[in-house]
Each structure stands twice: as C-alpha cells, then as structure tokens.
C-alpha cells in the first residue's frame, strides 16, 4: 500500500471529522459567503448525527447487499446453481437499467415511509453490481488454475477459499465500491421519504430557500463520498499488488 496515500487518507478523514464535530469552520466559511443569512448552519440536528445516520443507512444496506449479492454470485457459479446463471445475468442487467431513485420511490407504496423502506430500496439496487462482479470475477479465473488446484488435492471449499475468492477479490471489491457510491447518493434522496441523513439539510435548504443549509449539507455529503471512494481505491490497489506477489513468487 502506498504510504503517502494512506497518510493523505488519514489527514482528510481527520479534517472531515473536525469540520463535522466543530461548527467553527462552516460558520466561518458560510458566514462569509452569506452575510445576510439569519440561520447559517442547519440547526435541527447536529451535523455529526446527520453524518451518523447517513453512514448507518449506507453501511447497513451495503453490508446486507454484500452478504446477499456475493452468496447469489457464488451459488450461480457452482455446479448445482449454474442453471440459474442466465436468469441471474438477465435480471442484474435488466435491473440496473432501473434508476435507483425510481426503486426508492416505488418502495414507498409497498412499505411506507421512513428508515426501513429506504434500506430495502438501497439493498435491492446495490445487490446488482455486486452479483454481476462476483460472477465475472469468478469466471475470469482461468480453468488451468482451477484444474491445478483440484490436481493438488484441494476439495471444493479449499478451491473456493484459497483460489476463487482471493483471485476474484479485486473485481468483487470493484462491485462493492460501485454499489456503496450509488447508496451514498440514493440515501441522500432518502431524506425525502423520512430516512434522515445528509439529504435533510439539503432538502431543508431547497424548501426554505436557504443557500447556506444547502451548501452545508452538499459539501459534507460530497466530502464524505469522496473519502469513502478514495478508501476503496486504496484497498483495491493494494490487493492488486498482493495478487501480483502471489503470482510472482
């Protein structure tokens, strides 16, 4: 892992924690930009709590999606599940044409408002890239490697844990990265159906025509998405290197 990049990640995360726990920074910035605004910072809920509930939405849904998505991806690449592979491929590519916001909206008539329907909508959508990447990751492993593994006497589970999962890890992580980033974005819209999170100050800013609220929420949401994406780019790069080391020696 690149040391400089890890240090950079720590610095920006530290800065992020500082600006969400301490109102001083945004008071200074937004107060300077909007001198005539009465309420500069969104005051219904502290920013830390908003970031917390946003992260809760994203992490819970992504965790469920990883569990379900990787399981489906593994089942349809086993011998007994292979007959469902064409169907799963079709459904994942068909499903990804649906806009995530439309799925969020459609969960309201079925489940009502609040935290739970948002989680469900996020999970349903974010399973798709994970399944897709798990399948293509496993399929990208050359047959010769699998044959060798069987030849040295590995059983099915050993092949799965020692060969298939490590070798397809990068591609699977890529799918998880895609779905986490989509989740962060969709969770912002979740505020309109009462799920809380960083969409709240943005929506409040739009409704009350308060540009300061709006910018406060938008900046924090954008910054958070950037940090998480950067984190994923680091772990994906580092596991690529490890894989090369295995291949090389």
């Amino acid at each position: 892992m690149n040391k400089k990049k890890v240090i950079f990640l720590f610095i920006i995360t530290g800065f992020f924690v500082f600006i969400i726990t301490n109102d001083g920074f945004f008071n200074f910035l937004l107060g300077g930009l909007f001198p005539n605004q009465k309420n500069i910072l969104y005051n219904r809920q502290p920013m830390v709590a908003l970031v917390g509930s946003h992260l809760e939405l994203v992490m819970l849904s992504s965790l469920l999606a990883v569990l379900i998505g990787v399981t489906i991806g593994l089942v349809v690449t086993r011998k007994f599940g292979r007959k469902f592979l064409p169907l799963v491929n079709e459904l994942t590519s068909f499903g990804q044409t649906f806009p995530p916001v439309a799925i969020l909206a459609l969960s309201v008539p079925i489940l009502g408002f609040g935290f739970k329907p948002t989680i469900l909508a996020l999970v349903v959508y974010s399973i798709l890239p994970i399944v897709e990447n798990t399948v293509s990751g496993i399929q990208s492993i050359p047959d010769s490697i699998l044959d060798t593994a069987k030849g040295v006497g590995m059983n099915k589970f050993q092949v799965l844990y020692k060969i298939e999962l490590p070798l397809s890890l990068n591609i699977i992580l890529g799918g998880i990265r895609t779905s986490v980033i989509i989740n962060i974005g969709t969770a912002t819209v979740g505020a309109t159906i009462g799920a809380g999170g960083l969409g709240k100050p943005i929506i409040a800013g739009l409704v009350n025509q308060n540009s300061s609220y709006l910018l406060h929420g938008a900046l924090v949401a954008a910054f958070m998405a950037f940090i998480i994406d950067y984190f994923f780019s680091l772990i994906i790069r580092s596991s690529k290197k490890e894989k090369m080391n295995i291949n090389g020696g």
Binding site: L33, S211, A222
Partner: peptide, 20 residues
C-alpha cells in the same frame, strides 16, 4: 471520476448558490 462519486442531490446543491 470525482463528479460521479458526489451524490446527485449534493452536486445540484453545490451549483445553486454560485448560480444564484
């Protein structure tokens, strides 16, 4: 790549204030 990571709603929000 940077723009694609930002939540859509936040991206709109970032442009509203400067444009206004």
């Amino acid at each position: 790549g940077f723009f694609q990571t930002i939540p859509g709603l936040a991206l709109f929000g970032l442009f509203i204030a400067p444009l206004a």
